Amino acid sequence: MTMQDFAMRYWRNQGAPVEKLRMGFATYGRTFRLASAASGVGASASGPGSAGKYTREPGFWSYYEVCTFLQGTTVQWIDDQKVPYASKGQDWVGFDTKESFETKVNYLKENKFGGAFVWTLDLDDFTGQFCGQGTYPLIGHLPHF
């Protein structure tokens, strides 16, 4: 069970109307500085990853910064969470993709939850210059409910 599944079911089971429950879709990645050569899920971290070139906040990269980082890496998939991650050197980043967005949308539809919200428009590749997937590759991939 994922953290999102736990939270959505918790609120539903507490009596919240399912049509009012929304799940967040992130257009950013969370980064960590690896403490050793191990880079898989659960690897030790010594703190947040380096600051992004544009976001300038340690541990937090926009999706367009993630796309730049992914060049020369192999994206790994966390099966039980249905999300990807990648690492290079001591930097590790977990993020969403079109595929993980699809999984979340299917989950929302199957459980008849109310919908989604995105955080945030300006963190997606709004210019289409970084990811090679056109403008707003993540947000533009979300279907209408």
Rank of each mutant, 00 (worst) to 15 (best):
K53A: 13
Y54G: 05
Y54A: 08
Y54K: 11
Y54L: 11
Y54D: 04
R56Y: 10
E57R: 14
E57L: 12
P58N: 06
P58V: 06
P58T: 10
G59L: 02
G59E: 00
F60W: 10
F60G: 06
F60P: 00
F60A: 14
W61C: 00
S62A: 15
Y64D: 01
E65N: 03
E65P: 00
V66S: 01
V66W: 00
C67F: 07
C67N: 07
T68P: 06
T68F: 05
T68N: 12
T68D: 13
F69R: 01
L70T: 03
Q71E: 14
Q71W: 11
Q71L: 11
G72V: 09
G72K: 12
G72W: 15
G72P: 05
T73M: 10
T73H: 06
T73R: 07
T74L: 15
T74S: 13
V75E: 13
V75T: 12
V75N: 12
V75F: 14
V75C: 11
Q76M: 14
Q76S: 12
Q76C: 09
Q76W: 05
W77S: 14
I78K: 15
I78E: 11
I78H: 11
D79C: 14
D79W: 09
D80R: 11
D80K: 11
D80V: 12
K82Y: 07
K82T: 13
K82P: 06
V83T: 02
P84C: 04
A86P: 00
A86W: 00
K88T: 05
K88Q: 10
K88C: 04
K88G: 04
K88N: 06
G89K: 09
G89V: 04
G89Y: 05
Q90N: 14
D91K: 12
W92A: 00
W92L: 01
W92R: 01
V93Q: 00
V93T: 00
G94T: 09
G94Y: 04
G94R: 07
F95Y: 09
F95I: 05
D96K: 04
D96E: 14
D96C: 08
T97A: 05
T97Y: 02
T97C: 08
K98P: 09
E99H: 08
E99N: 14
E99M: 08
S100W: 04
S100M: 09
S100K: 03
F101S: 01
E102C: 14
E102F: 11
K104D: 06
V105E: 10
V105S: 08
V105D: 06
N106D: 09
N106F: 13
Y107V: 04
Y107E: 09
L108W: 02
L108F: 12
L108Q: 07
K109P: 08
E110S: 11
E110N: 14
E110A: 15
N111I: 13
N111V: 09
N111P: 05
N111M: 12
K112R: 15
F113G: 01
G114Q: 03
G114A: 06
G115L: 07
G115Y: 04
G115P: 01
A116E: 06
F117C: 05
F117N: 07
F117E: 08
F117Y: 08
F117A: 10
V118P: 03
W119E: 07
T120I: 14
T120K: 11
T120Y: 08
T120V: 10
